[in-house]
Amino acid sequence: MSDDIILKVENVSKSFGGVKAVDNISFTLRRGEVLGIIGPNGSGKTTIINLITGFVEKDSGKVYYKGEDISEWQPHKIADVGLARTFQAMRPYPTLPAYKNIIPPLYSPRARRSARGKLGDRSAVAIDLLEEVGFERDARVPYKLAGALPLGYLKRLELCRCLALMPEMIICDEVFSGLSMSEIVSMVPLMEKLQRDGITLIMVEHRLRELFKIAKKAIVLNFGEKIAEGSPDEIFNDPKVKEAYFGGEDSYVFK
């Protein structure tokens, strides 16, 4: 295995009561790359994230992160080696102010091992981090209860929780979905900045146009199977992809 391969997924499968949610999927990812995972609703995109990050147990298959077999690891241990994830349904701690949402990850062993964890007052660090992802410092937004934040901020809060871990890789589950056009437009530079900082990204997305501003390659899932892989052009011209999206009754329109 060459050194710059950060993630290697081998023949991962999972079925829920007879339905194959993820069927024998493999791919590899190099350090610093951005991979998109796309596919119609119910094609197993979120499941594959759960399988990689250990939130759902795999039926079979292996996952290697930086050459290490993490297939059987607990989610917190996977996060501890720098593979962070966001949730599609945002998961803040609703009764805590936004900046306090960032304190648990800053309190984690991984963050405390790093330089940032030694900076002392975690609240101050948390507010700095929130500013990085686009919370206005003076507008009191960081002090609002997370349960009362609008969707756009929640998505940023999710990202910020990952960043607090100083991850080497982030798996984002639909950061753009549900956002207004203007919110998306302001989100894209943020993702590009993460990429420039050398963080490897996997982005599960429906918004293909925005996705391909950032990602240079993608895989396409349908009914749990990988039906295509490659650059945006290759994917758009793949007959199987066209069929998956446009064929059948629930036709899906490229946005």
Partner: peptide, 23 residues
């Protein structure tokens, strides 16, 4: 801060796991 982690455990177990904390 550990008190916040406890509150986090109450509010949202998945987020605690995703924060590299052993639930």
């Amino acid at each position: 801060d550990v008190g916040l982690v406890f509150r986090g455990v109450k509010d949202n177990e998945l987020a605690i796991k995703a924060s590299a904390l052993n639930l």
